[in-house]
């Protein structure tokens, strides 16, 4: 069984609705395993999964590790510090050397857009993109889709608004591809410096007014804005950003009563999201995290299965 037309999961762009639905269905089965008291199935026994994280990460990294371990894969973790990268080894060399050790899956997080694609050209392993620069973060897109689908049954016709630094956000791109493939209508909202008009070509609506963007939305995803963007280059200050694009109790009044609040983490509390909203009843931030593990189990399972077919 393989859900992916390609051996790797480099992004959600171009994935069919069927492929995404199949991934989400598989994730639901996996989540059931995760909730057992004995969290272990032999599905990926004897498979080697390498986690290659060149950027700091808590959630995604841990989530991939848990996912691999529950499926009984052997996992190996490499981070930028403590690897040959600090000695100047190129990414291609790292990929070739890892490949010589016969891993089945390489999970990569890297600061450069296209890094996962580059690694995929230099290894026989299946490559899973765990976030490449400002390009895609496909498992985040999948876990967001799963979280919304189970609340709503289906995404068709639902309005999802993504607020923040969409220009530099890999989450925004994967969400745009994934959620629209499932029938949702996506709006990107942010200041004009972070919202170039070309983004509309992703099939999303663009808005610079938070109020108009969230009124009538069925879900609002708040993105973190990196501090380096708020030093006058893109935004005058964190303070001004927060009062123009932050979501607090006051702004919450603009939303539909049943609208959901998502955040890919880590949250800049008090900047894009007030603590009351982050921890409030509409927030599905923690279910997102649980679904993250389930989705990554599904992805590892499906790419490793595809890999086995090809090399079996």
């Amino acid at each position: 069984m393989t859900a992916l037309a390609e051996r790797h999961l480099l992004g959600l762009e171009g994935l069919s609705r069927e492929a995404i639905e199949h991934l989400l269905d598989t994730a639901l089965t996996m989540r059931e395993v995760l909730r057992r008291s004995v969290k272990k199935v032999p599905t990926l026994r004897g498979k080697a999964v390498v986690n290659l994280f060149f950027e700091s990460s808590t959630r995604t990294r841990m989530s991939f590790e848990v996912a691999a371990k529950v499926l009984s894969a052997d996992t190996y973790s490499i981070s930028q510090t403590g690897s040959s990268v600090t000695k100047g080894e190129t990414l291609v060399d790292t990929a070739k050397n890892l490949d010589a050790m016969h891993p089945d899956v390489i999970v990569i997080r890297h600061a450069s857009s296209g890094a996962a694609a580059l690694v995929s050209r230099h290894t026989r392993a299946a490559v899973v993109n765990a976030g490449d620069g400002q390009h895609e973060h496909p498992t985040q897109g999948l876990l967001d889709a799963l979280t919304l689908r189970e609340r709503w049954g289906a995404l068709d016709g639902k309005r999802v608004t993504i607020v923040g630094d969409v220009l530099h956000s890999r989450v925004a791109r994967s969400d745009a591809f994934g959620l629209t493939a499932l029938g949702a209508r996506v709006t990107f909202c942010g200041p004009p410096t972070l919202l170039p008009p070309e983004l509309a070509s992703l099939g999303v609506t663009l808005a610079t007014s938070l109020r108009r963007a969230v009124e009538g939305a069925d879900a609002v995803m708040m993105l973190r804005v990196q501090n380096e963007r708020m030093d006058g280059q893109f935004l005058p200050s964190s303070r001004e950003y927060s009062r123009t694009f932050g979501l607090g109790l006051e702004q919450l009044e603009w939303l539909k009563p049943d609208a959901l609040i998502l955040h890919p983490g880590p949250v800049n509390r008090g900047v894009e999201l007030s603590p009351e909203v982050a921890d409030g009843p509409r927030s599905v931030i923690l279910p997102q995290v649980e679904n993250g593990v389930a989705v990554r189990m599904a992805v590892l399972y499906l790419v490793a299965a595809g890999h086995a077919e090809e090399h079996g």
Partner: peptide, 12 residues
């Protein structure tokens, strides 16, 4: 080039 392809690829 800054345009539709760059925003899609996430390249500056």
């Amino acid at each position: 080039h800054e345009g539709e392809v760059s925003v899609r690829l996430g390249l500056r």
